[in-house]
Amino acid sequence: MKIVVTVKQVPDPNSSHVLEADNTLGRDKEVVLDPGDECGIEEGLQLKEAHGGEVVLVSMGPERAKDAIRKGLSMGADRGILITDESLSGADAYLTARALAAAIKAEQADLVICGTESYDGSTGMVPPILAELLGLPQLTFAKKVEVDGSKVKVNRQTADGHMVLEATTPVLITVTAAIAEPRYASLKGIMAARSKEVKQLSLGDLGVESGERAETIESMADAEARKAGAVIEDDGTAVDQIVKFLADAKVL
């Protein structure tokens, strides 16, 4: 089974990232493989271990995004493809998906695995656009995936429970953090990753025109902050004060 996992490099959620004056992230800021995509890689590896095949990582980003691919390769993925091009800087979901689709199409994958939404963009729109461009059905918000021959069964997380979904390969799935606990890369894995192939492609290589952006960020402002109210130490009267507060708010 050929499995493609899309992986994005994002600002480290654990470091406090400050935006530059032009609302971009400083280039020297810490970046990591998106935690959601790490789960996607883990699921891809587990499926490969159960059914055989190959796990290919595809990323669109600046050259340093190779580090994110390298991290996935050290977990055990087989090879990587990085789409990098000056004209992709600040790409929106549509352009990102068009670039990814061109690279993935050539791979003829049975299964394309994406995260449900990226840490920084959080549009959640790259996967459905990608599915449409690739002409694949999509099974989304998976917390469990089972493959039996060409049949793919997904347990989909919903707002009030779950759904069971089914499709035949080739198919695109998006996975939630509940899908699998990502493994740590072993020393052996890290060493092996160094010699694994990471192919670098430009938009020209893929025959994709960047075109006009579908959307433009006109301005960026700090989110409206709520004012802090009273902060009290629990000296034994806290409960009374909360009760009074609830009464004032007319819920008691």
Binding site: A214, E215, E218, M220, D222, A223
Partner: peptide
Amino acid sequence: AKVASVRAN
């Protein structure tokens, strides 16, 4: 943390 104003083209 931030709110962007985004125009659809």
